[in-house]
Design a protein around this nucleic acid. Structure first.
Length: 153
DNA sequence: ACAGGAGTCAAAG
DNA sequence: CTTTGACTCCTGT
């Protein structure tokens, strides 16, 4: 199954199967017909913090890249880590983490936007502004939650 | 066998 | 502040 949904100036394309296993997520300029999973549209609307029950094919991968993808996947919503931190945990070089992120077939699901460089944002394909938007989306959601909690006290 | 990354750090201009 | 070079190590060819 496949489909797309608008996100800012881009469309998020997604392809998945009946087991909620996602094989591809991509940022494209023009819409692809078809609906997307509810959890994805809610996430992009800033209404939920989890993509469950969607799962990335990368999590089942063997070897160094698999380790990297699992570590990145474990970064909580709204939090960030550096390429270096991930590299040290997995036991490899920061550049290898960068490479793995560039070849990430399922961004958002494997939240590569939460991995920044030591000095700045780091990169993002096809456009760095998407990375900024996703980070903004998550920090805005967390702010709202805080305000709501204060109301209840 | 080899070149190249979504990186990092120190040193120099 | 910006540029340069050394270091790193996995992947695709």
């Amino acid at each position: 199954m496949e489909g797309s949904i608008k996100f800012g100036l881009w469309f998020v394309y997604i392809r998945w199967n009946s087991d909620n296993l996602v094989s591809r997520i991509r940022f494209v300029k023009t819409a692809v017909s078809g609906a997307v999973p509810v959890s994805l549209s809610k996430y992009l609307a800033g209404k939920v913090t989890t993509l469950y029950p969607l799962e990335s094919i990368h999590l089942r991968e063997e070897g160094t890249y698999g380790e990297i993808y699992r570590q990145v996947h474990a970064i909580p919503y709204g939090e960030i880590k550096t390429y270096k931190e991930i590299a040290e945990f997995v036991g490899t070089a920061p550049r290898v983490v960068g490479l793995a992120m560039k070849r990430n077939l399922t961004p958002i699901l494997i939240p590569c936007h939460r991995v920044l460089s030591s000095h700045g944002l780091g990169g993002f394909t096809p456009d760095i502004s998407i990375k900024e938007d996703l980070l903004k989306l998550e920090s805005n959601f967390l702010k709202k939650v805080k305000i709501h909690e204060q109301d209840q006290v």
